[in-house]
Write a protein that binds this DNA or RNA. Sequence first.
DNA 1: AAATGTATTTCGCAATATGAAAAATACAAG
DNA 2: CTTGTATTTTTCATATTGCGAAATACATTT
Lengths: 282, 282
Amino acid sequence: MSGAQNTQENPRRARGRPRGWDDKTEQNTIKSLDRAMEIFEYLSADQGKTLSQLASELSQSPATVYRVLITLEARGLVEFDPEEQRWYVGARAFVIGARFLRRTSLVDRARPILRALMERTGETANLGIEKGGMVLFLNQVETHESIRAFFPPGTLSDMHASGIGKALLAFMDEDRFGQWLKGRSLETFTAHTLVAPDALVQELRRTRARGYAIDAEEKNLGMRCIAAPVFDMYGEAVAGISVSGPATRMGWDVTERISRSVVDAARDLTRAVGGSNRHDAG
Amino acid sequence: MSGAQNTQENPRRARGRPRGWDDKTEQNTIKSLDRAMEIFEYLSADQGKTLSQLASELSQSPATVYRVLITLEARGLVEFDPEEQRWYVGARAFVIGARFLRRTSLVDRARPILRALMERTGETANLGIEKGGMVLFLNQVETHESIRAFFPPGTLSDMHASGIGKALLAFMDEDRFGQWLKGRSLETFTAHTLVAPDALVQELRRTRARGYAIDAEEKNLGMRCIAAPVFDMYGEAVAGISVSGPATRMGWDVTERISRSVVDAARDLTRAVGGSNRHDAG
DNA sequence: AAATGTATTTCGCAATATGAAAAATACAAG
DNA sequence: CTTGTATTTTTCATATTGCGAAATACATTT
């Protein structure tokens, strides 16, 4: 088979790796549990379905889906509305999911910085990380203005059409970027979305040069966004801070002022999590 | 009075109830799935455990726990740190859990109200509901002050020692309150916590009379909280809005001013979700 | 009243989850 | 470098148990 040069690219499990360890990773997974989680995920993506809808759309037996839902319901992970005969994500799932944020103290450390950034710029400040090739918004501090951008925490967004996403891509090493781009079709959201890989690469180069990313109505018309990367102790871009608002208030005249604040905030957070920016001169 | 028309106290499933339907509800649950979810919940409650820790603490076979974790990891519901050999809640769980908030538009409607409340009072404003005998914090808008209360969304808190909790209890019907109190031991958090049922009942009566609840350092020393209930279309208290801050800034002299704002905010939200307050005179 | 749509249960069988133990690995100490 | 110990990961035999099809029970609609 492939020359199993177990270079350190896959350090998955450190101990106990008997015999044939090539690439059959999902051999020991529990099938029924995986199917159950598939149902759970599917339900969460589009709530308010009835049992038979779920069963047919997942092409599974209604009995199976029913048992899974009943079991999850007993734990509060899903909820059932007897009136409408519909299934929803339960409060317990919210409680458990929210505990994800506890691990990385990133959010805790980011909050005061996001707050200060919002105060200084007057626009909504956001924190996001890369997860599975997408941007995951972790937290935000909203502006006082009545017209404002709003990404609920937990939102997933495409990287190529997001300020934070482009900030992360710009500071990614070639390998990972190639990996990300490979076989990916860049969806069009507005007329300004960068869908041609060449155009994206070029923009990322500029982004890298200036130190921050600009999303000029590339996801939503009328919305601008300025983002900068946050680095961990290994100098890898692990998160991004952005400021987003309506294009009417985020004109090119204020870009420089805002971008300076965003870059400063990202640098503060980098410092707060013990990171360092290897791209910094000096 | 409790639900009038629906005589059965357990209207769970509306349709399809063959034969022996007495009270053996959890007969059809999937055992292995339930055990897996137990592991998942247990891990989420105290992250950063190693495999053998989890196995021994749950008194299950390491092999089983391992397979469950591997399966959940494949879906991103849990994550594994190869360096430290420790398991954590995954980002996917956060994404799915956050979708719980999408169902109830409560949070969406509450945000502008919470924001206005924070602006008017200068203190952190919170939104919470009752879930399984506890208060579940859904959202908050933080104050600008550097010393402030902070309940991360997703936090569960005891009802008897929480402003929102007491506001909900005070406007609960006798039956449900009795149900809640029955066999429950009220934990002591500070010297001010109301742990004697009589004292709690008396305080709830006062709460009901004045229309808002006061948490005077009953959970955390130095923290005060004023809360008011939000009603749904049936006049049931389904949520609570509160303002919380350090006792130094929330003295008795400002209680009246703040409480008025909180009650107004709760009334606004009640109206925004199409609810009505049956306790209102006229 | 009949038809339709949906939820819930029963039942037998086969898939598969399980625990014990062995194998594989890492780490620490000698 | 070797040994010892702790922990993870796999193997394997077995019976537990999850699964689908069909039956059943409501509710709503025609």
